[in-house]
Nucleic acid binder design. Structure first.
Lengths: 211, 211
DNA sequence: TACCGATGTTAGATATGCTAACATATGTTA
DNA sequence: TAACATATGTTAGCATATCTAACATCGGTA
């Protein structure tokens, strides 16, 4: 019990790691997210995540109900990261609403290409993460960041249907860019794709009302 | 050559089923597609597909290399169906190019909502179906159907970058609609979503050149 | 007819999700 | 300090999955 072969850290931490991990649930979610990015949601295994962390394959079930429950927590951390990235992008742009909106779109796509499998997990429907209230609310908050900016642009209230419809148009396009990019489907177009150009062009056209 | 090995008559099929299934590879792809729609790509098992068809769990490996190989064939049949649906929708509209384009977009979304898991498999990146040349080409052909119509609308050649860029804008939006619909993500908007309205509105705005 | 390749079968190796029973560490309370 | 309760680990094991190996059978062809 005096030996600590893992790391010459504070004695208490090392002593805890002799038997208790200390913060397994957080470490597991983090490790699973890494494995998902490497193997995809369909092919990763929590057994391998356990091996990497150094606990038995039964340990996770003291913290999570099942595999889907772990994925649910991975998705939730993802939504937190995405919302943060969008807010940061918005605040980094000048006070021009159109540029702010386009900037948030780019941040959305950057997150998607940087965390493709997590992104697909977050917005996918299997396993059904939407049943979890807190996960769903975290997702809604993400959309609200866009609505606010759109509302100030068209001079309407955030809760006005007009604001929401306009936001849906923009979100839909940006989500399409993200999806087709991370799945490498733009190959079919056989022209080089610059996401920024795409977003700026579409933002300009979609914010125009036709009649 | 006079015989019909593709589809044996009922009595012949029954006789063959004593030992040989007759057309296991086709039946397996069909059954797997059903199970994928029920359970999702991540959770289905080919073992269950075997049970439903009535063969041992080892039988598929006389026809396919592995699980991913089966999924590759499922995706290919999906691309065939999608291309057919788009062509049919195009031919069902009057000769107005804008309406034809919007019609193809609606067919795209209808296919997605009708075969959500197959759709996700087709456009997803895990397992990597794009490495298979014939599957990739089948996907490209699907995009070409759109390009042709867009090219006639803007009066350019199908191979012109302008035609392709314009098509990418439209495809991106429609793909976004399909993805967000089948994953039930429009809940975040908290307004009722009519895909047709979305597509018609966006098609109109995106086909407009701004400057 | 006799062979041979295509297409099945059974048995089994390995991996995974998850449960049950048990062990250890930590914190509270007498 | 001693003892208990709870949280969090462990090992053992069950059920099921993918895929391989060795063997069996069918159907076509020399």
């Amino acid at each position: 019990m005096t030996s600590k072969e893992t790391e010459p850290r504070p004695d208490e931490a090392a002593a805890r790691q002799a038997y208790h991990h200390g913060s397994l649930s957080g470490a597991l979610v983090e490790q699973v997210r890494k494995l998902i990015e490497r193997d995809g949601v369909a092919d990763f295994s929590i057994a391998e995540a356990c091996k990497a962390i150094g606990v038995s394959t039964a340990a996770p079930y003291k913290h999570f109900a099942d595999k889907h429950d772990i994925l649910r927590h991975v998705a939730q951390t993802g939504f937190g990261d995405l919302t943060g990235a969008m807010e940061q992008a918005r605040d980094g742009e000048p006070k021009d609403a159109v540029r702010r909106i386009a900037g948030m779109g780019k941040a959305y796509v950057t997150f998607a290409t940087g965390n493709p499998e997590t992104f697909k997990l977050m917005f996918g429907s299997t396993p059904d993460l939407k049943k979890d209230d807190s996960t769903r609310e975290t997702g809604h908050r993400c959309f609200d960041v866009l609505i606010e900016e759109v509302a100030t642009f068209i001079g309407a209230d955030s809760s006005a249907p007009q604001s929401r419809f306009q936001s849906v148009l923009l979100w839909t396009f940006v989500h399409g860019v993200a999806s087709l990019l991370i799945d490498k489907d733009y190959d079919a177009a056989r022209i080089p794709i610059d996401p920024s150009v795409l977003i700026e062009e579409a933002t300009g056209r979609l914010l125009q009302e036709q009649r």
